[in-house]
Design a protein around this nucleic acid. Structure first.
Lengths: 394, 394
DNA sequence: AAAGTTTGTAAATTCATTAAACAAACTTAG
DNA sequence: CTAAGTTTGTTTAATGAATTTACAAACTTT
C-alpha cells in the first residue's frame, strides 16, 4: 500500500533531506542548506536543532564569511554509531567495523575450511563478537550487522543455495539476530558489492550501475534508479548463466554455454589444466597463474587474454540489455586486471551498440575485495536510518 | 533533487491515493476509501469533493447498505478526457482514441510505403487530426498524444535511429507538439508495449515484467518496480543484440551471434529462403509462411519450431538476469504462437535456473498488436495526471 | 565609523490532517 | 411498527509543520 501523507510525513521527508545534505555536502551551514533545498531558514534551523539533539549532527565552529555574519558549519557525526559488515567467502571471512559514514574502523580476516556449517557459523559469530566488543563508546553503539554471502537468499534472510559452499537452507539471519540482538541484513555478495561500489566506490553519483563479481562463478548486483534491484522474487543477477553459446558445453545449471563456463575463475583453471599440462597443482590455482603471468609466461598470459575477451562478450550483453552508466568488475579474478582489461575493452568497443555504450565506464573495482563488506555494512546503516527517513522523487 | 515536503505535498499525496483507489476499485464509497487507506472520513470527504469538482470522479447513486445508511458510490469518470495512442510501424500506422481509463473509443489503421520521412509524418498528422476531431465533447477534451516508434529516442523526443524505417534524427515530438499544441510523449514501441501490458494486459498486478517485441528485430521493454526502466541514457532493452553465439555470424550491429539473428522475423525469412527454396516471393513473407504452416507443411512448421527454441534460449537469459515475474511475447511473430510456444517453454524448463523461474509466467500477448498503442495512450494519460499526483512508497 | 550583507532565530499566519461529535439514513429485532 | 443499533458522511475544534515577515547578531567593505 502507498503511504498516506500527514504532518509527520512532511517532517520526516524534510528531516531526511536536511540530514542527507549534511551527510554528502558537509561541512555546510544552515543558510546554505536552506538555499539549496528550497526550505526556509526557519524550517532548516528547527530540523537541524533536532538532529543536533539526536547526536547525528554536530557543529564544528564558524566557517568563512562572504561579507556577513560567519556561518556555523555542520557535520554529520559518523561516530554516533557503528555498523558491522561481513563478507562470507568460500574459504575465508572478511569482516569490518565501520562508522555511520562507512569509514572502516577495524578489519578482521580469518580463514575457514568449511568443515561444517555449524563450525563456520561459530567462526562467524566469534568474528562479529570481537568487532562488537571492540566498538568505541558512542550514542547508538553498534546499530546492526550486514552480511554478504556467496549464494542466493530469500526475504527472511535464509541462505537458500550456495553451491560453492555446499550449503542449503541455512537461516543465517535468524541465527545471528538471536545471537546478537541486533538487526541483521543478508544478501548475495554481488548485491552487497554493488551497494558498496555505489556508496563508497567510483559509482558514487551513478543511479544505474552493474557490479560484476567474478569468482568461481559470475554474479551481478544491479543498482537501478539508485536502488538495488533484487528481481521479482529476489533472484536477479544470475548473469553467469546467460548463455553466450546456445549449443555450447553443458553447465551444471542445466543450460548450455553459460557465460561463467568461459569467463570465471573456474573456467580459467579448467583451461589451464587442459592446455598447459604437466605443472604442479599448486601453480594451478589462481594465485599461481597470476604469478606465472607476472613472470611473463606467454601461454598463461594468453589464457588471461582469452578470458578477457570472454568477459567482454558478457559485458556487451549487459550493456545492450541494461544500458547502465557504469560497470564495475570485482571478485577474485579482478587481480588479473593487467591482462584482462585490454581484450575486454576491445570486445566492448567492437561489439556493443553505440548508443548504450556512449558515456559508459567499464572498470575494475577500486575498492579491491572490500566492495562486499562495505556494502554489507551499509545495509545495516540503511536499515538504521530507514525507520526515520523518507524521500519523495521530484 | 528530492522534493521537499509541505502541506501542499501532503494533499497531493492523499489526493493521488484517493483517486487511484477510485480508479482501480470503483464503484467505491467514501467510507470504504477511508477504511482501506487509513485516512479519516473527513479527509476523504474533502478530497473526494475536490475530485468531483474537477470532474474526474462522479457519484452514481446509492449502493447496498450493510445495516446503516446507504453509501454514495463513486466512479472514476473516464470520459472526462481522451488520449491518443499511436503505433508507428514499418509499413503501417495504428492509432487509437481512448478515454482516461484506456478504453478504446476509435481505432484507425493505415498503410504507409515510407516513401519519405515527410510523407509518413504527413500521414501521421492526418490520422491524429482525424482522431482529435472525432473525440467526444468532454471536460478536458484531448489531453495528449503518445507515440510508440520502431527505434530509439532521446529525452527530447527525437527519434534518433530507426533502422527498419531507415530514419535518423527525426524531431517527432517537437513536430507533433507544434502541430497540435498538445503534450506529446514518444518512446520505443517495446517500451510502450510493456506499459500497455502492465496497464491493460495480463500483467496488471505485476511490478516486474518484461515485454519482448519480436518483429524484424527483437526489442524489450522492462517494467521494474512498477515503472518503465529506460536505462541510464534511455537506451535499455536492446536484448535483440544479446549474443547467444559469441563466435556466430556477423550482425549489422558489429557483434557476432546476436539473438535476433536467430529468433526474429528476419531470421525466419532468411532461414526459409535458405532452406525451403523454389517458392514464390509472396509465400515467403511472414503471412505466407504462417499460412503454409497452418496448411500443415512440415518443413515450415519445423522452421517455426526451431525459432521457438531460439526464442527460448533468449528468454532464459532474461529470466536468469532479471528474474521478472512475467514475460510477455508480442510483436508480429506472436502470430506464430501455435508452433513457437512448445519448444520455447521446453527450452525455458530445461535451461533456466529453478529459483528465478519459480512462479514465472511466460505468455504471448493477449492484447495482440494493441499493446503498443495502448501503452502509448497511457503515456499521455500518465503525463496528464503527473502534474497533480504524487506517491510515496511504504 | 557607517553602510551593507549574511546568518540564524522569533512571532504570527496558513492550511491539511486528525479527533470527536453529530445528523441523516438505513436495517433489524422484538 | 417502533426502538435500538449501524453505517455514512459532514461539521467543528485542535494540532502541528511549514511559510512569511521581521529582526538581532555578527561580520565585511568602504
Amino acid at each position: 500500500m502507498k503511504q498516506t501523507g500527514d504532518l509527520n510525513l512532511v517532517k520526516k521527508i524534510n528531516k531526511t533531506i536536511v540530514l542527507n545534505h549534511i551527510r554528502t555536502d558537509s561541512p555546510i551551514s544552515r543558510a546554505r542548506i536552506a538555499e539549496v533545498t528550497g526550505l526556509t531558514k526557519a524550517t532548516v534551523s528547527s530540523l537541524v536543532n533536532e538532529l543536533l539533539e539526536s547526536s547525528l549532527v554536530e557543529e564544528i565552529g564558524a566557517g568563512e564569511s562572504s561579507g556577513g555574519r560567519k556561518p556555523m558549519m555542520l557535520l554529520f557525526k559518523g561516530t554516533a554509531g557503528y555498523a558491522i559488515g561481513v563478507d562470507l567467502g568460500v574459504h575465508d571471512i572478511l569482516a569490518v567495523l565501520t562508522d555511520l559514514n562507512g569509514a572502516i574502523v577495524r578489519e578482521l580476516r580469518v580463514q575457514h575450511d568449511n568443515a561444517s556449517v555449524d563450525a563456520v557459523i561459530a567462526q562467524l559469530k566469534a568474528v562479529i563478537r570481537e568487532l562488537v566488543e571492540s566498538a568505541p563508546q558512542s550514542v547508538y553503539s553498534v546499530i546492526g550487522i550486514g552480511l554478504g554471502v556467496p549464494g542466493i537468499c530469500d526475504e527472511e534472510g535464509r541462505l537458500l543455495f550456495a553451491p560453492n559452499l555446499g550449503w542449503e537452507n541455512v537461516p543465517l539471519q535468524a541465527e545471528l539476530e538471536a545471537e546478537f540482538g541486533l538487526p541483521v541484513t543478508i544478501d548475495n555478495e554481488a548485491n552487497a558489492g554493488a551497494v558498496g561500489e555505489k556508496q563508497f566506490g567510483a559509482g558514487k553519483d551513478t543511479a544505474h550501475l552493474v557490479y560484476v563479481s567474478i569468482g568461481m562463478g559470475i554474479g551481478a548486483g544491479m543498482i537501478i534508479r539508485g536502488e538495488l534491484y533484487r528481481g521479482a522474487t529476489g533472484f536477479s543477477g544470475e548473469i553467469g548463466h546467460i548463455s553466450i553459446q546456445h549449443d555450447g558445453p553443458q553447465c551444471r545449471c542445466g543450460s548450455l554455454g553459460c557465460w561463467e563456463l568461459y569467463a570465471s575463475e573456474q573456467a580459467l583453471l579448467d583451461q589451464a589444466r587442459a592446455e598447459l599440462g604437466g605443472d604442479s597443482a599448486s601453480a594451478m590455482d589462481l594465485d599461481g597463474l597470476l604469478a606465472r603471468a607476472a613472470d611473463g609466461e606467454a601461454a598463461v598470459i594468453r589464457l588471461f587474454e582469452r578470458l578477457g575477451y570472454y568477459l567482454g562478450v558478457g559485458v556487451v550483453n549487459i550493456i545492450n540489455a541494461y544500458n547502465p552508466s557504469y560497470i564495475i568488475l570485482g571478485g577474485r579474478l579482478a587481480k588479473g586486471e593487467k591482462w584482462l582489461m585490454k581484450p575486454l575493452l576491445e570486445a566492448v568497443e567492437r561489439r556493443s551498440l553505440p548508443h548504450p555504450r556512449a558515456g559508459l565506464r567499464v572498470e575494475f573495482s577500486g575498492l579491491g575485495d572490500r566492495s562486499t563488506v562495505l556494502g554489507a555494512a551499509s545495509f545495516a546503516v540503511a536499515k538504521f536510518f530507514a525507520s526515520t527517513t523518507v524521500t519523495v522523487e521530484a
